[in-house]
């Protein structure tokens, strides 16, 4: 996975406050359900611009997210089968409708945009910023230990690319030992799992040691979050764009 994880930079997307980025994600994730294809087109342009500003490779993104395609096939099939309209394809008693297919295409488009936004967020935000932002947002929520959750979320963000690299390395080692010759999926999973878990827990132990050596406590100096004029302009832009998209819808 070459595109999942923080990419150092000082672009306009990098400079946005993390809270605003999370807000952007949440708002677009929610309004994308209600907007039409015109709105999705506008949203696509905004997100493609963000992807190019952060300098993510579109080709690598396609490669990294190829399994999203499998999910989309199921979504397309579900929509095509569930929405009644004139048939454009029949397999035995299964009738795939035209309207369902179009509806499914819109849904998949929406899914792709939300995914891209998440990737842009990961690429442009340090895990410590994400942790601080999430802590700030969870603070008013009762019964949720925001510092613990923020810490865990920061670790997730930090470790996803590390684990995926481990998977790649383990996969290469297994291929070198002829795993491609074994088609049995059970065998493949049972062989991939133990080294992956062992290495992950080894890393966890090292991390715990490092945290203890640095006297880790929940009561520590937090990363300061501050807004600049750029963030306020971004917020106005978000409200304006959301309003416009919903109005068009």
């Amino acid at each position: 996975m070459s595109q999942l994880g923080y990419r150092h930079g000082n672009t306009i997307v990098h400079r946005f406050d993390v809270r605003l980025k999370i807000l952007y994600l949440a708002v677009f994730s929610l309004i994308s359900v209600h907007i039409s294809w015109i709105g999705l087109l506008v949203l696509t342009m905004v997100i493609v611009a963000a992807v190019s500003v952060v300098r993510l490779s579109i080709v690598s993104l396609f490669r990294d997210f190829r399994y999203l395609g499998v999910l989309m096939i199921f979504v397309l099939a579900a929509r095509s089968l569930s929405i009644p309209d004139h048939a454009f394809w029949r397999i035995d008693r299964l009738v795939f409708s035209h309207s369902g297919f179009m509806d499914g295409t819109i849904y998949c488009w929406r899914l792709t945009l939300i995914t891209l936004m998440g990737v842009v967020m990961l690429a442009s935000t340090r895990s410590s910023e994400i942790r601080a932002g999430i802590q700030w947002m969870l603070k008013p929520v009762p019964f949720i230990p925001e510092k613990k959750v923020g810490m865990m979320m920061g670790l997730i963000v930090r470790f996803i690319p590390v684990i995926l690299n481990q998977v790649m390395e383990t996969g290469q080692a297994l291929r070198a030992r002829g795993i491609e010759g074994r088609r049995n999926p059970f065998h493949r999973m049972a062989i991939l799992g133990p080294p992956l878990l062992r290495r992950t827990f080894l890393q966890a132990d090292r991390l715990v040691l490092a945290m203890e050596a640095r006297c880790y406590t929940e009561h520590r100096t937090e990363r300061p979050l501050s807004t600049t004029r750029l963030d306020w302009i971004g917020l106005v832009g978000l409200l304006g764009l959301s309003g416009m998209l919903l109005f068009v819808a």
């Binding site: 994600l25 997210f65 399994y67 395609g69 979320m153």
Partner: peptide, 26 residues
């Protein structure tokens, strides 16, 4: 925490999707 990370929009769900909208979807 994994579900919360997805709800905050991180691409952690199947295929690399995320977002609060996934919880209201199919």
């Amino acid at each position: 925490v994994y579900l919360l990370a997805g709800a905050f929009g991180l691409p952690v769900f199947a295929g690399g999707t995320g977002g609060i909208g996934r919880f209201f979807g199919p």
